[in-house]
Design a protein around this nucleic acid. Structure first.
Lengths: 327, 327
DNA sequence: AGCCTGTAATAATTCGAATTAGCATCTTGA
DNA sequence: TCAAGATGCTAATTCGAATTATTACAGGCT
């Protein structure tokens, strides 16, 4: 393996000092440092001839930035089973990283303790990057707290409750999106609503349920939370909002199986959670989560954290999907 | 942003010298450098408390290792349009990287000149990583040559012709796979073969065509290369091998449109290239490319390059897919 | 006391490039 | 003619960690 050329080598060849090579390379024209045109040309010629490129490692050692953004996920991102969930986020992240000229570091080395990666372990590599985007339905509270206390620049994708301090995040406005769905359903004449899903645990679930409760209260209609729903538990309700897309789809199929009409006898809406893969052909009414945009904005927010030591918190609007299961 | 901790900081807190911290951190036990157990424990405690991690940049500057593996692609990897192609490879790469405790660096910063990323530019960051996996249907010859002459450790996914020297790669054995398909078709009685596709340009295309030529020659049957095929050009042939899955699918549909039976009147096989998305429901006869395994092996090969300065070259077998379009 | 041996830790140097302070040399202008 | 200023370049330092050479000190032995 041919030894790599250094600025010192170039300097020797051009008969100047290493400092001069550096100045020429960076095209410095300041009043304080001047290089004669002939000298500059001579150095440039040697650089051209040798194809010399500055060693980025050494270069980055000097500034404190290395233009590397970390992406942490609690599990592998590429397996196809998880692709539907991660991919749109990552698409946005990659896009924005490319725009600001940063490389992306995937923390695949994080020791998988009990099948789940850890942000902090004996030799946490989280600080490899200038800053870090955290991705996952739920994030460990202790991890968030430690990130905050250690002053590690990061942004969460998805809203997060305070963890010993405000957590910088870019989320989706599930609360408003769910309220909007209820509003629309009320306009269709619905008065008896059921919310199907956990409604707690992850912030994303809690936000949805909260939006639901606010909306039914505002309209003065009946709204019940049914954590795990079979069709039998939904007798009497005319509109069901299912956190999970797959749950919504299953309900539609089950209802039609029993000869019920959807949306004739029962309206079903989905709240976009895609923990499990779901059939697409049903055309569920609901909303889309701006995953890609969230990825983009997260990287932008991270640059704000890095440059202004800010704590950005932002919720992006979800877009209504008409579908065919509300009537 | 809180200033990043240095070994000097740790040293101060533990009341020792920076050198001592380094020695403890690297768990050096040599006879020449000894650290008292109490001192060691004190330093480790400070490290644990602060969550200190050595700056990989500085570390790399000194010992030329940082447990970061680069992944270079000429375009973004996450957009869904490219996901089908990249994903299986990346899945294998991620899996193996996780196993050997390395992080993955995606070179999103590579300047996109004319929409295509460049490995080498004014500020090439390729050397940030210990080594690099190159991914893409075709790789720039000049880039490969430069990687070789600069002695940058890398492995190509996909076989590559020499570029001023042998190129380390992990590819798929298209040659053998295509020969196998022809063998099977001959066994079915076919004697007039057409090869549809470029058959040149990328090594993967050339290898397929080469396998085709070898097989028809070995059997003494007729074999013609038809770069861009419409159904009309295929009159007289009884078996068609299409490089592109989508081309094969289109041929089947076109043939059936004209009232021809597939495989009754015409057999169609595909050679697995998936540049464009293709319908899956046809059940084309052909073979699968072991993309995921290629990703895994590429990372393993890269470790061989790094540890033994080897130049691994390996072709993995493709698996026959019976399908329904050969008879 | 003087000398050696072992132990424990540190000072100093290295990696490659960027930057700052500063040293010569050459012009001007008074 | 001499100070002031411009010009062109380089020596020295910095970044953070790893390594080598070296020092400091205790205890044992003659």
């Amino acid at each position: 393996m041919a030894k790599r050329l250094t600025q010192q080598d170039i300097a020797r060849m051009a008969g100047v000092s290493q400092a001069t090579v550096s100045l020429v390379l960076n095209n410095r024209q300041d009043a304080s440092v001047r290089i004669a045109p002939e000298t500059r040309a001579r150095v440039l010629e040697v650089i051209r001839r040798t194809g010399y490129v500055a060693n980025p490692i050494a270069r980055r050692l000097h500034d404190h930035r290395n233009r590397i953004l970390g992406v942490f996920t609690y599990e592998a991102v590429f397996p196809s089973t998880r692709a539907d969930f991660y991919q749109p986020f990552l698409e946005g992240i990659e896009e924005q990283a490319e725009e600001i000229g940063c490389d992306l570091l995937l923390f695949t080395s994080a020791k998988a303790a009990g099948g789940r990666r850890r942000i902090f372990s004996d030799d946490s590599r989280i600080r490899l990057a200038d800053g870090c985007v955290l991705l996952g339905r739920s994030l460990d509270r202790d991890d968030l707290a430690q990130l905050l206390t250690e002053g590690i620049p990061f942004v969460s994708i998805g809203r997060r409750d305070d963890a010993g301090g405000p957590v910088p995040h870019v989320g989706a406005d599930y609360r408003a999106a769910v309220r909007d769905l209820v509003d629309r359903a009320v306009a269709f004449g619905h008065r008896k609503f059921a919310y199907v899903g956990a409604g707690k645990g992850a912030e994303s679930s809690a936000d949805r349920l909260r939006g639901f409760r606010e909306a039914v209260a505002a309209h003065g209609v009946e709204g019940t939370h049914v954590p795990f729903a079979s069709l039998d538990q939904l007798a009497g309700f005319t509109a069901v909002l299912a956190e999970e897309v797959s749950d919504g789809a299953a309900l539609v199929l089950a209802a039609r199986d029993r000869g019920l009409s959807v949306p004739g006898d029962l309206s079903v809406m989905t709240l976009g959670a895609a923990t499990r893969p779901a059939p697409e052909e049903i055309g569920l009414t609901g909303f889309t989560i701006p995953r890609r945009e969230m990825g983009r904005r997260a990287v932008q927010a991270l640059t704000e954290v890095l440059e202004k030591a800010a704590t950005p918190q932002e919720l992006l609007p979800c877009e209504f999907v008409a579908g065919t299961t509300l009537g």
